[in-house]
Design a protein around this nucleic acid. Structure first.
Lengths: 215, 215, 215, 215
DNA sequence: AATGAATGAGAATTCATTCAT
DNA sequence: GATGAATGAATTCTCATTCAT
């Protein structure tokens, strides 16, 4: 998962126009605090103190507390999704690509609890999330996943009698199902084992097979 | 799961001395509100308004907001556990009893989302829960489960080389794993299918079997 | 200080018509609690709990919290003043009577911190005190003190060129001055030494003396 | 006692960086209210109303009600102590300095009842006082007093056979004893007479004297 | 680009008190 | 003579947010 980049430069530098220092400090502060407690119990005052800026500055850059969360999320998602897309494209064969995607996704949840919790828990109940850039990034990601599946249908490696969107739902649901409890109770996930298990079931189910001759 | 009783009389009437009207209204109000939003975002003022009482009355009957939650929980658990114990005792054979228990448990989570969410999510992070009556009820329940397992060991229907507490943990963990995601995202659970799956794995694993002759 | 009575029967039984049990328990509870904390931080609920009665009963017998305080005070003052008057009357000579009075007063403050604090601190800032029975008792006491002084003026043992009320004020002020710091900081008072010191100054000042022949 | 400064500029302007207007108004409001009633019965809402600010602003500048009290106190003490130190240093001879110190102290209690009451009564029962800046100022003051005494020992004007700290305790205890009742009952103190009396006893006791030849 | 000052709305909790029975 | 149920007004404190500079 893009080890190169994380060593040279963290994902929050990955921008055309880098953030002004204050904005960057604020986002970093929220990231830090999310590692310590839930979003609801993080206060603007916490964030400001942690960032070494005044509370007012937060409202210069962000509409409100949730907007800050969404921007932090979008930034991370942009980093993760862009990286993953590139890596996946470098692989041959839709099934192998799916494997890679599933592993990457689970591995991301495991190695980045903060974002796992935000994505799986904090963000979904609020309407404004679905209007945010972060949600746009997620859509870009699921569109990419869909494209991989459709590619597999086109080249015959994935059965065509189940709608691609259903298959996508199955995969995303499976990942979620596998990672949610660990995320909630802060247990670690074994990404290899978990993705292997999931692939065993899912890939088995979606690949076409010889019709066994009846009778 | 004691359908009969829920028709004639709801579980919150199940008491020798019924609650004073105000207390009952408060508990009912919390139950209602928990169906609408998370515990953290329910305010005392919400509860009071919903119950049609003053905020002060809540503090007459409950130490604080969490104590109210625990009492609501304890009341429900008392109802559920007592009912389940009776039904399970009426069944012959520890394995059948386990089956019944597992199904009841999952079915309770499915048909009572509010309590499922409280038990699986809201309550665990706070120390005072473990001092509450509600937790005592849970302990009574898990003791009962343990007793069923031990009974099975005694009569030979459950293997004796795994500690009973480990088996219990396996069952409870399996139930949790199966129900948590549905609970969080308010999806419905298919209790029969879910418990069948779980039983298939668990019961298979804990019943003794003929040693296949080697070679 | 009336040891006999305190052994046979405590002062709160000293009434023509004894209190109904609930009332007695309430007053006893306040007395107890005053030994533990300030009046302001004693709640009606504290008192009720301590007395083993309901809060409502307190309002059956007392207009409000301060009225309860005043009644407790009045009861004690009645006991103390009646006892002291009798003892003082049994003594011959106004100067000896004054001595006795001063000692008794100081000794009461020392051996009964609760009442010392109430009288010296809690009660004075509130207008309703001066309308209470307790204040009437205090007036009876200071009247008695005045009478002793006037008796001394009549029989020539006390000088007549200072108004009796001024002398009384001197005595009461002296007692207060001597006892207040100990009361506030919960130090013990040595009644004998303290009253001896006070008498040395006061009695010296108020007794008539030979006019030294001038020049 | 630095009369000059109190005319030109009140002590609460004595700072390098003056307080923000809101903070100053809050502190002034508490000072005012302390002249009217006890600290315990002054509410945050009282203070805010009196200062013409919102209650929330109080918590911007002060941790809580007691912290506000301590800061008000510290500010006054800083003013008083600094002024007194300077005046005392301008005097020659430790005994004269002690005289000045004692008079200043008593005079301060007399002319500034509000602070006298806080220092003598309100503040002592609470642990956090002893962690406050105000207490640090008091310590600075008593250290200064000790230094004067030790200076006197060095130059032979104060006897060396009593520990300096004991002498200090004697002086401070004497002042307290002399001022407490007047403070509580809002009577005025005569600083000259009171300090003369105190000095008569104390200075007499601590100066070395010719040993009278025995026999 | 950033700050300092201030706010309004509302959170949990406390407490003296009332009243019908 | 005593209780059980309930209240209203206050209290301390929190927090997201705004705005002039």
């Amino acid at each position: 998962m893009a080890e190169k980049e994380t060593i040279d430069s963290p994902f929050w530098d990955f921008h055309d126009k880098p953030h002004p220092p204050g904005k960057a400090k604020i986002m970093a502060a929220l990231r830090t605090l999310l590692g310590e407690k839930e979003f609801v119990s993080i206060t603007i005052s916490d964030i400001a103190r942690n960032a070494g800026v005044t509370e007012a500055l937060i409202y210069k850059y962000f509409k409100d507390k949730r907007d800050l969360l969404h921007q932090v999320l979008a930034e991370y998602l942009n980093f993760y999704i862009t990286g993953t897309e590139n890596e996946v494209r470098a692989i041959k064969g839709p099934l192998n690509q799916l494997r890679k995607l599933i592993w990457s996704h689970i591995n991301m949840y495991d190695s980045n609890r903060v974002f796992a919790r935000i994505l799986l828990l904090e963000v979904r109940n609020f309407a404004d999330y679905f209007l945010s850039d972060a949600y746009q990034m997620v859509k870009r990601y699921t569109d990419f996943l869909l494209a991989v599946i459709e590619e597999g249908m086109k080249d015959g490696s994935i059965r065509r009698d189940i709608p691609a969107t259903v298959i996508r739902q199955l995969i995303l649901g499976g990942i979620e199902h596998a990672c949610l409890p660990s995320t909630i109770f802060s247990r670690s996930i074994d990404p290899v084992k978990t993705s292997d298990n999931l692939c065993a079931i899912v890939l088995e189910g979606i690949t076409p097979r010889f019709q066994p001759a009846k009778g």
